[in-house]
Computed example of a mutant assay.
Amino acid sequence: MEAKKSLVNFFEGICIGCMLPAHPVKRTLYRAVTSLLSTFAALLLSIYQSTLEFHVEGENHLRILRTLQKNHIVAIWHTFVDAAVFCLHHRNLCIYSDHPRTQEYENSSVHFFREIGLKTLKALGFDVLDASLGKQSAGIINFIKKIQSGTPALVAPDGPHGPIYEAKPGVIYMAAKANSCVVPIGVGFSRRIVSSNWDDLSFPLPFSRVALVVGEPIEPSDDMSEASLARQAKALEETLDRLCFRANEILYGNHPKETTLPITNT
């Protein structure tokens, strides 16, 4: 089924994986060094976050879902995944984690830096499901089961390779299978650095303003046909774009701001 293929492609390369050295001494050193560096990275990110000014609109949508204990998946464009690290780290969101299953990767040093990133995310409060220890298909199934059990998740509908700002049906398919809704979030930065990646990955500059607009939860349809999934993905795409425009209105327009705060645990 095309939807299942899309779901697998959706997770390819999203996230962070690792490969431990075989020698026990090297393995212990590897873990110690990556843990130390990730702790330092988490500290730096926390200091960095304290310089940002956050404007949040639609927070009640998430509060209601938590009160009702409703399974949900937070959807944010790949461009703004960095914003999730700063703004959503206290919500116990689960992130799917894997690495390329190639010999080239196994022989590279990339996994070392990805291991640091994985541990940094955990230190910041994210729940990272590491699928690198088994088959990728099993990892996706476990990810869906984790959402079913009540752990909210964070995904980028246009990941992992784009095209940019085009939602794939995988997130809708996964939400239906996990008996959850999709919560779209639009983001805007007053000042940012943009990478040269396909996704224009953006980083807010220190002392800049960050706007988040949380949209109404989207319930997936019972119709799981390819045509239906494509329509729902397109609707999600349009909603995310609208919320991002709204985020920029908050930053640059004359529209009232619902909330202004550094984000705290709730």
Rank of each mutant, 00 (worst) to 15 (best):
V187P: 02
S180I: 03
I250D: 02
I14Y: 15
I250E: 04
K5W: 15
R101A: 13
I140R: 04
V182K: 02
H89R: 09
E12L: 14
V85D: 07
K26T: 02
P163R: 12
M174E: 03
I193K: 15
P184Y: 04
V81E: 05
E57A: 08
F245S: 05
P206T: 00
I172A: 03
E249D: 10
R242Y: 04
L236T: 00
F40T: 00
C181Y: 07
H111A: 10
K168F: 09
A22G: 06
S202N: 07
P184Q: 00
P184W: 01
P21F: 12
I147F: 00
R63Y: 08
G186P: 04
G117K: 00
Y105N: 05
L236Q: 06
Q103T: 12
E104W: 15
H89N: 11
A42Y: 10
K135A: 13
R242S: 15
P217E: 04
N92S: 15
D241C: 04
A175F: 00
S109E: 01
E219R: 08
H23T: 03
P204G: 07
P21H: 13
I141G: 10
G58I: 00
I47D: 11
A211Y: 04
S208C: 12
G188N: 01
Y252D: 02
V187A: 03
H72S: 07
I164L: 15
Y252R: 06
F203S: 07
P217F: 01
G117T: 00
D130R: 04
G253D: 07
C87K: 08
F11A: 01
L93E: 03
Y48E: 01
T39L: 13
C18S: 09
L93I: 01
G162T: 06
N248C: 08
F126Q: 01
P160G: 12
K168N: 09
H90G: 15
T239F: 08
I64P: 09
D241M: 04
P217R: 02
A156F: 05
L52M: 08
L7S: 03
Y252C: 09
K5E: 15
I76L: 11
R66T: 00
S137Q: 14
N197T: 14
H89E: 02
E59I: 05
P160I: 02
M19C: 07
V187G: 01
H255R: 14
L229F: 05
V210H: 00
P100K: 01
V33A: 11
F40Y: 11
